[in-house]
Design a protein around this nucleic acid. Structure first.
Lengths: 226, 226
DNA sequence: TTAATTTGTAATAAATCTGTAACAAATTAA
DNA sequence: TTAATTTGTTACAGATTTATTACAAATTAA
């Protein structure tokens, strides 16, 4: 796990507990004890998910939620709402709150973790798993290492991102345009033929001693991980 | 899913949210925030479905709807109307509006997706599913693979598109003109006899070891998938 | 700074696909 | 039956797409 989670919650004891356990799980965690600061810090932190308390000293959870959905650059940020029992559960359950899931206090950490993973899996599958595997190929995001048959392979940064992208959806064919969009930084223009060269480099690196070819060329369509 | 969806909606936040999620589902999405631009861009984009806001700054959704149904070359474009609560729901429900379905804001993305799929399944089934099957033949769009009796078959790009087209409507006979129009890129002119050659090539590829012929010749009419 | 690595592009080679023409075979009409 | 029409089959040249290589510019590390 290598996602970033932001917590807005006014009870320090809850923050402590949750933060500590999430960090043990490999998440990067930041938090705020009130809504206004939270909204500010959120933007800097760029989390993959927000844990949001329903009752805060300044803004209500629902206000923050609306604010995020409407104004900020985090329109699609997954949000899990934390509520005390009886706190208008029904309203939150409603589809219109813009919340992805909610949890009633007191909750167990494992319960929370399960919800977090479920939501992230839906939104942002790559965040949930730190290690991507396909056949005898292994890629570790944390450590930025790649192995084939347990033998470590050295890749350049672009080759690494390219392989990471293919591993996020093995077997699916991607056009050069799709590859460009997902692997290269935004607003950068490179010749579409350049991809061929990077594919060649990646192939050369991952096909060690007589292992089979893992990248398939699909003429007039693109490439896929077998 | 690989259809194209066009959105005409004046609230950028809704466009963002919907577009992002639809793209994650595999749709190609374009949008416009007003009616007049929308009508123009629509023609270039050639979508498989239109999401249309009921209240727009310039034209009303109903105007756009009428315009599409009467004047344009997209007479049969499926349309899903988005309305705010209370916005003359009854009028929209009426059959005469020319809308295929409608959704009241606020709505959840999953609800929207379900409606989209339902409408597309009705209109344009091939857009909705990645995998087309007929008897012992299987074609996967994402992976660009074809199997007969679970044995993979290699096809050239044109043969693949040709088979994809036949699979979208098995048993239906298509004339050479129809095949040309649907399988070849627009504005390309090829001899109609060329199709015979491609049919021959496709037949050769998919009829592996004594499996039965799957492409039927209908003399003076065209071809069909049995 | 210098050295090493990485990156994008262009050029050329190799592989594969495409459209057409020509003739054969099958079917229909006269 | 023969002639006319339609489809099947083949081969091939040209077109398109991808692979590979080399190199200079850019970036990063030492």
């Amino acid at each position: 796990m290598n996602g970033k989670i932001f917590i807005i919650e006014d009870e320090p004891s809850i923050i402590q507990l949750v933060q500590h356990n999430l960090e043990k799980e490999g998440f990067l965690v930041a938090s705020s004890t009130n809504g206004n600061d939270g909204l500010k810090d959120l933007k800097k932190f760029e989390p993959n998910l927000l844990l949001l308390d329903w009752m805060l000293p300044d803004l209500s959870g629902i206000d923050i939620c609306k604010n995020i959905r409407n104004n900020s650059s985090h329109k699609n940020l997954p949000i899990i709402m934390l509520t005390a029992k009886g706190e208008e559960e029904d309203k939150i359950k409603g589809l219109d709150s813009g919340v992805d899931d909610y949890l009633t206090k007191p909750f167990s950490f494992n319960e929370l973790l399960a919800r977090i993973k479920a939501v992230l899996r839906r939104y942002d599958p790559k965040v949930v798993s730190n290690s991507l595997e396909f056949e005898d190929l292994k890629l570790n995001r944390f450590e930025k290492r790649v192995f084939r048959k347990n033998i470590e392979i050295q890749l350049g940064p672009t080759e690494f991102r390219l392989l990471e992208f293919f591993l996020s959806n093995p077997k699916r064919v991607y056009s050069r345009d799709q590859i460009l969009e997902n692997v290269w930084p935004n607003n950068i223009n490179v010749e579409s033929r350049t991809i061929d060269v990077h594919i060649r480099r990646l192939r050369k690196s991952i096909n060690i001693d007589k292992t089979k070819e893992l990248i398939r060329t699909v003429r007039s369509s693109g490439y896929s991980l077998i």
